[in-house]
Simulated assay, not measured.
Amino acid sequence: MAIEARPAPLESRLGYLLKHAQARFARTSAEALAPHGVDGHELAVLVVLSGDEPLSQVEAAGRLGVDRTTMVSLIDGLEDHGLVERRRSQRDRRKNIVELTSDGTECLRQAEKARRAAEARFLAPLGEETAAVLVRALQTLVAEDQA
């Protein structure tokens, strides 16, 4: 009768570690962004809309990888807070172009500063070199998914 190896403890499993690290980072980020009146999803929308070219709601949703209904909800909330504004496209009247307002630009600046500081605090226990390696490794894994 063969002796079976015991399963590895949860604390050594990649899925468990990634899930709990992400949950901890989400809490850290939420606390950092709360004073700016946005959450991580809304900040991502502001980042995408801050590019050089104006985007429609559909184009922004595509860049973020969210469905159109979710995008409408996100834009509605940001518009209610005066951070973005919609306007009809001059080229295609069926499209809504979404742009940051001046308040949205300032919110983005301040929230990004808070996000970067929260990220640095979260990664600090690793040291700069290890943190950079972790970020590069995660970028590689995400790029594989997008290829």
Score class of each variant (00 low, 15 high):
residue 112 E to W: 05
residue 113 K to I: 06
residue 37 G to H: 03
residue 2 A to E: 15
residue 124 A to G: 07
residue 33 L to M: 09
residue 32 A to V: 07
residue 128 E to A: 08
residue 83 L to F: 09
residue 46 L to E: 01
residue 83 L to S: 03
residue 111 A to Y: 02
residue 21 A to P: 09
residue 97 I to V: 11
residue 132 A to M: 01
residue 91 R to C: 15
residue 18 L to S: 10
residue 134 L to K: 04
residue 86 R to C: 10
residue 64 L to W: 01
residue 144 E to F: 10
residue 6 R to N: 08
residue 19 K to C: 03
residue 18 L to G: 05
residue 51 G to Q: 02
residue 101 T to P: 01
residue 104 G to H: 08
residue 8 A to F: 04
residue 131 A to N: 00
residue 117 A to T: 03
residue 14 L to Q: 12
residue 9 P to M: 04
residue 62 G to L: 02
residue 100 L to Q: 03
residue 92 D to C: 14
residue 70 T to W: 12
residue 42 E to S: 03
residue 62 G to P: 13
residue 37 G to P: 05
residue 15 G to D: 13
residue 102 S to D: 11
residue 43 L to S: 09
residue 6 R to K: 12
residue 91 R to F: 15
residue 104 G to Q: 01
residue 18 L to H: 09
residue 31 E to C: 07
residue 99 E to A: 14
residue 11 E to D: 06
residue 36 H to T: 01
residue 27 R to F: 00
residue 4 E to P: 09
residue 100 L to D: 07
residue 46 L to K: 04
residue 50 S to L: 00
residue 2 A to Q: 15
residue 78 L to V: 10
residue 110 Q to T: 10
residue 90 Q to I: 15
residue 140 T to C: 05
residue 134 L to N: 04
residue 99 E to I: 13
residue 119 E to P: 01
residue 45 V to T: 11
residue 55 L to P: 05
residue 2 A to K: 15
residue 85 E to P: 08
residue 118 A to F: 04
residue 57 Q to W: 11
residue 10 L to H: 06
residue 112 E to I: 01
residue 35 P to Y: 04
residue 33 L to E: 04
residue 28 T to K: 11
residue 29 S to L: 12
residue 5 A to M: 09
residue 53 E to K: 14
residue 115 R to A: 07
residue 80 D to F: 15
residue 15 G to E: 14
residue 39 D to K: 08
residue 65 G to P: 07
residue 48 V to T: 11
residue 89 S to T: 13
residue 74 L to M: 12
residue 82 G to H: 06
residue 113 K to F: 09
residue 133 V to H: 11
residue 77 G to Y: 13
residue 117 A to M: 03
residue 118 A to Y: 00
residue 72 V to C: 12
residue 66 V to T: 10
residue 64 L to C: 10
residue 75 I to W: 10
residue 28 T to N: 06
residue 85 E to N: 13
residue 146 Q to G: 10
residue 133 V to E: 14
residue 123 L to G: 07
residue 137 A to F: 08
residue 72 V to R: 13
residue 81 H to P: 11
residue 119 E to K: 03
residue 98 V to L: 11
residue 140 T to N: 00
residue 20 H to L: 11
residue 112 E to G: 06
residue 70 T to H: 12
residue 135 V to P: 07
residue 137 A to I: 02
residue 137 A to Q: 10
residue 73 S to P: 03
residue 83 L to T: 00
residue 39 D to P: 03
residue 124 A to Y: 02
residue 92 D to P: 15
residue 87 R to Q: 15
residue 138 L to G: 06
residue 144 E to P: 06
residue 81 H to R: 15
